[in-house]
């Protein structure tokens, strides 16, 4: 690599000139050329994957855990089994990967990161946000998680213990946020609306219900 800047606009490192999209296209062309994969196979895989991947999967896991203590116990002990119970198939998006759900409590707040690259439970959360992949988030959340969370608008009591889960190997993490006060009468389906994607990463809390309840309740349901 030349550090010279004497050749006009070509003074950049050549690695930077190939965008990720170009590198992927080059790789695909090579694989097709060698007969290892066809364009149709790639299209089919991506379409199937995107149809099933998304944060609604993670929200469904959390909502079920909030209303069903037995399910929550399974989710915390063996998240892959909980996925199966909910009819979510992990093999679609990560063969051989183990999911682990970590639960926020009054004493503990969890947040996930991948300092080495961008490991993320994509099937449950959808494609990851760009900040999750940024060097700034990856470097800072393991060094000053309280400060990073404050920048995300998450202010925690000073005595809350923060656990930062660095996804360095074959496990993928998802956070079970605390169920918001005021959501006691919400149904499982309604509760999924209170679980934003970032709450599953740990950089947000579950949404506080603005009103007592979004819709009319059947009579006899209390106040």
């Amino acid at each position: 690599m030349s550090g010279d800047h004497d050749h006009g606009e070509h003074g950049h490192d050549h690695e930077e000139s190939a965008t990720m999209a170009q590198r992927v296209a080059g790789l695909v062309a090579k694989l097709e050329q060698k007969g290892l994969v066809t364009e149709e196979q790639i299209d089919r895989t991506v379409t199937t994957f995107l149809a099933k991947a998304g944060p609604s999967n993670g929200a469904a896991l959390v909502a079920r855990a909030w209303v069903d203590p037995g399910f929550k116990a399974t989710l915390v002990a063996d998240a892959n089994a909980a996925l199966q119970a909910l009819g979510l198939d992990m093999s679609q998006w990560a063969r051989g990967v183990t999911l682990r759900a970590v639960e926020n409590t009054e004493q503990v707040h969890n947040v996930i990161v991948c300092t080495l690259c961008s490991c993320y439970p994509i099937g449950l959360l959808g494609p990851s946000p760009s900040w999750y992949k940024s060097a700034a988030y990856r470097a800072r959340v393991v060094r000053d998680p309280r400060g990073v969370l404050a920048e995300f608008g998450v202010a925690l009591p000073s005595d809350t213990e923060i656990r930062v889960w660095d996804s360095t190997a074959e496990l993928r993490y998802i956070v079970i946020p605390r169920r918001p006060v005021g959501s006691e009468t919400w149904t499982e389906k309604e509760l999924t609306a209170l679980v934003p994607r970032d709450a599953l990463i740990g950089t947000a809390l579950a949404t506080q219900p603005a009103a007592p309840h979004p819709g009319p309740r059947p009579s006899g349901g209390g106040s």
């Binding site: 213990e161 660095d166 360095t168 074959e170």
Partner: peptide, 25 residues
């Protein structure tokens, strides 16, 4: 493969506290 928990102080020195980092090693 183990989940290994590290105290903030061990990673970043005396000034760091109130959190742990858990990595799979």
């Amino acid at each position: 493969l183990y989940g290994v928990s590290f105290e903030a102080r061990e990673l970043w020195g005396e000034g760091a506290s109130g959190f742990t980092v858990i990595a799979d090693l």
